[in-house]
């Protein structure tokens, strides 16, 4: 992963502006942020505060309009489209609020997808995807398509997909936004487990309950960081079938 001396994420004066001239919207207004390896960071803020934009920029899904962003020491602005694709594939793992699974495709094949772009040898595809699905507690749902899975199960498939290439950082945008409280607890427990294994996790949420499970809470307002608090995380209830 990374040596302790290099932060996973380091930004200086990060701006993201949509549109131009009078109609320009500044989603980010000079964000300075450093995240070390092994943190579990919750980004909070009201809607429209720019918290999702920040996550997308950190996750290389979006490019900053101005400012510097170093991911594991690499200057992201200098990377080509192919190098960015490689980083998204190898270093980062995404979890979306709406799961973003391929429809009519089994859980196994959904988890295999990032490995196809990584060039993983064929004989390793199914075993590694199976292992990832077991890790999120879906070992018995390999052949289920998203339509046959509950919301919580779909999100676990998405987490397995984010995990399968063994990323340094997992970025999750409102991962529990579509889930009920029991399922939310299960997903949070899963994130805490992964965090315990050394993966850096950044999740965006607007629920204080969810943020309470993080080691650090960032509050974003009007495109800038309004507060940055380190805390002792609350333990999620371990109701998941282990």
């Amino acid at each position: 992963m990374t040596t302790p001396t290099i932060p996973v994420i380091e930004t200086h004066g990060l701006w993201r502006t949509y549109g131009e001239g009078d109609t320009a919207v500044h989603a980010l207004r000079g964000v300075d942020l450093t995240i070390e390896a092994g943190e579990l960071v919750a980004i909070m803020g009201p809607s429209g505060s720019g918290k999702s934009t920040l996550l997308n920029v950190l996750g290389c899904l979006d490019r900053p309009t101005a400012g510097a962003y170093r991911l594991l020491g690499h200057d992201v602005a200098r990377l080509s489209a192919n190098e960015l694709a490689r980083i998204r594939n190898h270093t980062l793992g995404f979890v979306f609020q709406s799961y973003q699974l391929l429809p009519r495709t089994t859980a196994l094949d959904n988890v295999i997808l990032p490995m196809l772009y990584a060039g993983t040898p064929r004989r390793e595809l199914a075993p590694r995807a199976t292992a990832a699905l077991r890790r999120v507690g879906l070992g018995d749902r390999l052949d289920h398509t998203p339509a046959k899975l509950s919301g919580g199960q779909q999100q676990r498939v998405a987490i397995a997909r984010a995990l399968v290439n063994e990323p340094a950082v997992i970025l999750a945008d409102e991962p529990t936004g579509n889930l009920d409280s029991t399922t939310t607890a299960e997903i949070l427990a899963l994130f805490q487990e992964l965090h315990a294994e050394g993966i850096t996790i950044i999740l965006v949420t607007h629920e204080a309950d969810v943020a309470a499970h993080a080691t650090r809470v960032l509050v974003v307002k009007d495109g800038a960081i309004a507060s940055d608090v380190r805390q002792t995380p609350r333990r999620a209830r371990q109701e998941r079938a282990a």
């Binding site: 899904l61 192919n82 998204r88």
Partner: peptide, 16 residues
């Protein structure tokens, strides 16, 4: 387009 976005988020290059 969304599927293309997802594939790119998972590491697909434009060429892929």
């Amino acid at each position: 387009t969304r599927e293309i976005g997802l594939r790119m988020a998972l590491g697909a290059r434009p060429r892929d």
